[in-house]
Design a protein around this nucleic acid. Structure first.
Lengths: 238, 238
DNA sequence: CGAGTCGTTGATTCTTTTCAAAGCCCGTGG
DNA sequence: CCACGGGCTTTGAAAAGAATCAACGACTCG
């Protein structure tokens, strides 16, 4: 198992500036900066179901899909992790889910033991991890609602709108969505088949809701219609 | 394993008694014991989607279902909370899900602010809440796999086996399952209709896998068959 | 005992899956 | 530079599974 990082080692991070705040507000950032990083090609795995847990990872760049499988091969993607997100949080012993890069991805590797040790001593870090976990719980439950109760087209609309909103938050064009995942991944995320995903794209295109510039590049033409389909919030004052 | 709590900070809690144990191991329990409790009849709500967050609750007795709804009324139950479980963890601002008692239920009410304050000062408590949240995340993802990728009968088998295993953990008869929820709740949990749930029960009964003593009391006759249907673990050495 | 809720069963419809094949995009190699 | 091959995506037709619509039965509570 991994020993606690010594304070001196914390300083290792590249590009630290001396004007740091007094409290532990950025302790986590520091540890992350000090961590080893790892680059994965699309389709490479970060870890598999059942692997012993060594690290918690933070996505620096790219998209990672987290999935579970049944023995007969049926697969359910339970989350897509994007830049900034943590994966492997809250697990102990061995991984209960697998993580696979969807695109070229860069990760920071945080030794799990050390991270939890830090969290134990530094409430700030603990709170940060707690929040991250809460967000993942909320995401899982939202996906559950989508998969359990929405139709195929509604599911796709929900995904597109989520990606659009993500663009918005990141300062990118919310009407132009570059899909970081394949049809197969979308299918396994939305609990559909690739054929149904494809047909749903076609339906949205034919209804004028979206444009498909390429199979991986979507333009939202009618956001209202998309929101109507998701119907997650009574889309009132927007 | 766990870091020592700072003795001075432990003293902060309200209604502290002098016979406290040395470590923070029972801090959370104590706060819980000191908390107000609340009794709800079946179908009463603990809180609704959108309610401001005042408390985190721990179930003392009974079963609470947590659900989300779409504006048109479609409902997805995302979890059933049983005795010992926390509900309302990880939320902030207002509740994103609703909580409704399935049976006569007793809760302990923990003021959310105070609890988080304690967690901030006492890593033991923080870790406990973190674990509870991790468990909920794992549960949500498992349910996602079930709902997304299993057939109707498999879903029901998965639920029955989960309840059976829960009995096992609690020292009750794993072959005798007393369902604390209605068909409608099972349907909304497994993303089916009540008719399909009923038909799945019938199928399991007719295949000799279970007995239905009453609509709410199930006897497992062929556990192997049930495990086969779930196929969550290669059911090898069991 | 009657009303009402909850659960089961049946017939039909609908959505999605499955099976099958063609089209498209892209990189490779001639 | 263009032809070829392979994977990914789209489209079509048929089949399966679950939902819907409808009615009946069972249990519970006044």
């Amino acid at each position: 198992m991994l020993a606690m990082t010594l304070p001196s080692e914390i300083e290792t991070g590249p590009s630290r500036r001396p004007d740091q705040p007094p409290a532990g507000a950025h302790m986590l950032d520091r540890h992350i900066r000090a961590a080893a990083s790892r680059v994965l090609q699309a389709r490479e795995h970060v870890f598999f179901e059942g692997d012993p847990i060594h690290h918690v990872y933070q996505i620096v760049k790219g998209t990672v899909c987290l999935y579970m499988t049944l023995p007969d091969g049926r697969r359910q993607i339970v989350d897509f992790a994007h830049a900034g997100d943590f994966i492997g949080l809250g697990e102990s012993g061995e991984h209960s889910i697998a993580a696979q890069a969807s695109t070229l991805t860069k990760l920071r590797c945080l030794p799990a033991g050390a991270l939890h040790e830090v969290a134990r001593h530094d409430p700030q870090v603990g709170v940060q991890l707690y929040r991250a976990l809460s967000d993942q719980l909320a995401a899982a439950r939202n996906l559950l609602l989508t998969v359990g109760r929405r139709s195929a087209t509604e599911r796709l609309a929900t995904l597109l709108l989520a990606l659009s909103r993500r663009n918005e938050r990141m300062g990118a064009d919310p009407a132009r969505i570059s899909l970081p995942m394949s049809r197969a991944e979308i299918a396994d995320f939305l609990s559909l088949t690739i054929e149904t995903v494809s047909r749903s794209f076609t339906k949205l295109r034919q209804s004028g809701t979206i444009d498909l510039i390429q199979s991986t590049l979507v333009l939202i033409r009618d956001r209202r219609a998309l929101e109507q389909l998701c119907a997650d919030e009574p889309a009132a004052g927007r």
